[in-house]
Amino acid sequence: MSAPSLEIADLSIAFGHGRARVQAVDRASFSVAPGDAFGIIGESGSGKSTILRAVTGLLDDYEGGVLIDGQMAPRPRARAFFKTVQMVFQDPYGSLHPRRMIRATLMEPLEIYRLDRRDDRIAQVLVDVGLAPEYAYRYPHQLSGGQRQRVAVARALLLEPRILLLDEPTSALDVSVQAGVLNVLNALRRARGLTYVMVSHDLRVIAHMCSRIAVMTQGRIVEEMSVEDLRAQRAQEQYTRTLIAASRAAVTAE
């Protein structure tokens, strides 16, 4: 049994001080095996995205442990860390620099890590996410939301990470566009053996993408379950049942 690809141990994050102190994440723990897809579902303010930010080190002020392959992640994160862990952000309109050509955005990690064959790599990664290589010569405002999100995925893949954190990657997209992006993400995971941690408020998306699912509310993971249990509505906690019922209401209620 190898060490889990990613392990979160007793992670706690608080914002503010004194009376304004808010416990955003309260002793959250989970672990993800290599090649697995782990989902975190919760409503706004449940702390699910905060966990991802803590894993990446964008949010440095946390208690508890973030372990990659059984090793404590360095604080602050060293450069090598980002060759292992990358993230795709929620808002495709906000995560690409508005004044830089896509090529410049994609070139950046290659320059920083002094990788070779830069133009080849960019062309290849664009093809991998389902875009023609010519998209490198566009500016973000010339792309649709789905195309932007594909570029964001491409950027995250350039350093060939093993773990990809997905922060509501399709919540800003139309369902038809969402289908394409989710297909690309699934195909990439299979082809490259990636480990995913995906955060979403959408039960359908989480169920489609992930094999294990943590349910979060008010900063705490209240339940962890398999996707089969989720589909069969075998939930232990009242909150999980409410969440599942609300998500299904639109499908089954008549």
């Binding site: 369902v175 038809s176 289908a179 359908r204 993408m209 589909r231 998500s247």
Partner: peptide
Amino acid sequence: SLPPLDHA
């Protein structure tokens, strides 16, 4: 194009 909830 909606991911189904009941089956994979």
